[in-house]
Design a binder for these strands. Structure first.
Lengths: 242, 242
DNA sequence: GTAGCACCTATAACGCCGCTATATGAACTG
DNA sequence: CAGTTCATATAGCGGCGTTATAGGTGCTAC
């Protein structure tokens, strides 16, 4: 416990490992690369982390803390389903932001050395769903719902990561998200209470379009697209805050 | 091309690799283990397969042929949605029967050395969906539907594999399956095609909303969502065909 | 002081890995 | 039988994760 004396080596190892992992495009990262980048010799690594996997576990733990922070920064908005959407999107976004880290966290599924991250993410999601179960109506137990959502969420994220950047489209994510969510919870009961008083032009136009769409479905949008479009339209129309 | 003379070495390598991979519980399998089990020295392996990855590709190809055979043995029953269910279940079953092989085939996602299996599975599923699109009504393009279904299918299978055998429950699979399928295709007969009414109202409203959005961006939609929303809005506004 | 004692880091090496330069045999072809 | 081609083996390279051993460094006890 020296207050002054820890400029780095353990921390340098962590940083170096994280950086090399992020850069290396899926290629394995060797301990020698790491120790060299951290300007440290091999035993230092094993003294502090015991193992190569121990080091990577620490890296993952850091990334996972960031992930959970982002998750926790999504507050309960009063609309649980909407919260679930944001959590889903946050999950996907994290995967696309840190693909290599994500693959270590969620892609490397070995029964023996099970990363606790999956279980933790599952538990966290379950918690969100428990709130959803209280507020809105949940069709299954939070546990089952969490597993289903997380499985689909991971599957989608892995597929998006494996796509090249230009081919990548979030439509896959949005579509699958809506599919799973709508099956797990009753989407929304509340029809919009519309007061056209001091509402912005955007809201008015959105409501008008929504009304027009009731009588005529455009064929430019596919079913799920239309469904989602209508929902977004609904979201814009029912702006309650501020 | 000798008709008689191939009792084994190449084939023994394949069998040995497959066996060792299936037995080794996720632990890496070395070329030395394989060549020793096949009673062959190292260069033989590289002569026939070029690479360790080449050998495993061959193993995967064998497993994938088995997988595709099972897939193809599922005939068109006349009920396309029911067919899709069977394909989903077959996918999951294959993953649980050959977990290690499955992890190599679908879990190891590297952008560089992309396993062709995923693409092939996707294409195959797309073909099934194209039939579904003809018979029943599909609500999205077969391509999009295939990607969504496959992503969820892989995610579920990976999660089931990572579960211990006793904790494993197919409820997760069935639940997620129904969620994705019901969102992608109308289960029974479809809702009537509504193209009748006067469309201009929609177009006008869409243009108005688009204009309103230029000056004021709603905060109910996240960045990617808004982008997609605007694109769809544009699609609706510029209806020119038919 | 200095002796003892944790702690942290470095030197050097072990055994395993994927892989290959080179050589040898075996089988066809002329 | 000479020539060519294919298939296998000997022996070894460089890189990997890891560690036995030893050397500093700073703290506390006398």
């Amino acid at each position: 416990m020296k207050s002054t004396g820890d400029p780095a080596p353990k921390l340098r190892l962590l940083r170096a490992a994280a950086a090399l992992l992020a850069e290396s495009d899926g290629a394995p990262v060797s301990t020698r690369q790491i120790t060299e980048a951290a300007k440290v010799t091999a035993p230092t690594l094993y003294h502090h982390f015991g193992d190569k996997e121990g080091l990577f576990d620490a890296v993952v733990a850091e990334g996972f803390a960031e992930y959970l922070d982002a998750e926790r920064s999504i507050p309960a908005s009063g609309q649980p389903i909407e919260d679930l959407r944001r959590h889903w999107d946050n999950h996907v976004q994290f995967g696309l932001d840190h693909p290599q880290l994500y693959l270590v966290m969620f892609g490397n599924i070995r029964p023996e050395r099970r990363p606790s991250t999956v279980a933790t993410a599952e538990a966290f999601l379950e918690e969100v769903l428990r709130r959803a179960a209280a507020a809105s109506r949940l069709v299954v137990t939070p546990r089952e719902a969490a597993r289903s959502i997380l499985a689909a969420n991971i599957g989608v994220t892995l597929m998006l990561i494996s796509d090249t950047a230009e081919k990548r489209s979030l439509e896959l994510s949005v579509m699958t998200r809506e599919a799973v969510l709508s099956a797990v919870a009753t989407d929304s009961e509340a029809d919009p209470v519309i007061d056209t008083e001091g509402t912005p032009a955007v809201v008015v136009a959105a409501i008008a379009l929504n009304a027009a769409l009731q009588s005529s479905h455009p064929d430019q949008l596919s079913g799920p697209e239309l469904k989602l479009f209508l929902e977004w339209l609904h979201r814009i129309s029912s702006r309650s805050a501020s």
